[in-house]
Nucleic acid binder design. Structure first.
Lengths: 212, 212
DNA sequence: GGTTGATCGTACAGTATGTCCGGACACTAT
DNA sequence: ATAGTGTCCGGACATACTGTACGATCAACC
């Protein structure tokens, strides 16, 4: 009998992580082959990972649980990358912005397929939807705050409506990351980052620079 | 017996349209209640429209066929609205741009729920996916051409990479229309159109104006 | 050698999709 | 009136996927 003090949860949690990673690898591969998460059945997933379906349901509540387990871990990594943007201020150059946005793209890029799967699953799985909405909400709120600060400090176009502009720009990035940056080779990202930088720079920061 | 010269297809086609509209009304209502198209079963749809499930399959191939039938008709309406944007040139004011974009938003807005459903169904229905990709591709190509023309004519920032910028801006609009403009009352659209105009104006046209 | 934990196979209920068919009903031409 | 035609309904069916349950198996470990 295992002692009551030795928590039995930790072994199980570790096992869950191992299985999760094994499955995510399979899912990633199937996604790269052009299938959507909705089209991938648990049976298929589990079979290609060499595991029985019943084992899956030992560790995961349902199909979406796999993505939820992954999302929780990745979220902070993304948030850390994005936070570099908020350090842009009156003293920053366009190159500084480019570096900050490039970092976001580069951190996001390897996770694009699974991220897209998560946004896909959000369409029919309410608990995934909640996660996704929370993340987007947080990102939008951060950018809105940055815009407000920048307007107060005079380095962001004062004519922009902060909340709405934050919404448009944040969702723009979301689509870009999931739809057309996905699958690009790192070298091909350069021009995409150029375009992203140009849009953000021209929209937010350029108007008050050329004017000054 | 109906004469062989009197095409029996026309009656059927008309009937199909009538049924399609009846069903789309139901779907629209369910979507407005916060459900996603994936979550709505044919059974439910058909039942709330007071029709049998077998009748549905007389007129439609599968679940996605309903959306495909609708999408074909609506596409040209959208395309017509967007084409106003391409008339912006060196002589146009920011107000002209705003009017053009406002028209796009206003034409799109009432169709937002069904459009979102179509983009949702694209995740698991390949033939819907094809339609959606074709439309986005066409829109992106139009904007890319506009950017190229504008750069040649000197009224659009020459530093922008045309293809990539077109991609980012087009997908930005897609998300906006489907995700957060959806459900807004017409009066609430004003500030959103302001933000949209500001982003497009600052990105494309403003840089070469303040500079000149 | 017996206990434990992890996994497997299988079976089951529930739900959805798409197909098929027989019957009911109305309209219409003869 | 009646037979043909178009339209719809209800139900049955095959298939597929989800999530749950349970007994069997196998390896590790005291």
């Amino acid at each position: 009998m295992p002692s009551a003090t030795r928590k039995p949860q930790s072994r199980r949690a570790a096992r869950r992580e191992a299985i999760r990673d094994r499955l995510l690898e399979v899912v990633q591969r199937l996604l790269d082959d052009g299938e959507s998460f909705t089209e991938i059945s648990v049976e298929r997933m589990v079979q290609e990972a060499g595991m029985s379906r019943s084992t899956y349901y030992v560790y995961f509540e349902d199909k979406g649980d796999l993505l939820r387990a992954w999302f929780g871990e990745i979220e902070s990594e993304i948030a850390a990358a994005v936070s570099g943007w908020w350090e842009i201020d009156a003293d920053s150059s366009r190159e500084d912005l480019r570096a900050a946005l490039a970092r976001v793209v580069e951190v996001y890029h390897p996770h694009a397929p699974l991220m897209a799967a998560t946004y896909d699953a959000a369409e029919y799985d309410p608990s995934v939807r909640e996660l996704v909405n929370a993340m987007m909400g947080a990102n939008i709120a951060s950018l809105r705050k940055h815009i407000r600060n920048g307007q107060a400090a005079g380095f962001i176009d004062p004519d922009l409506p902060p909340a709405e502009t934050a919404q448009w720009l944040t969702w723009m990035a979301e689509r870009a990351f999931h739809v057309f940056l996905r699958g690009l080779r790192p070298a091909q990202l350069r021009t995409q980052i150029d375009a992203y930088t140009a849009i953000v720079w021209n929209t937010l920061y350029a108007p008050v620079r050329t004017g000054a």
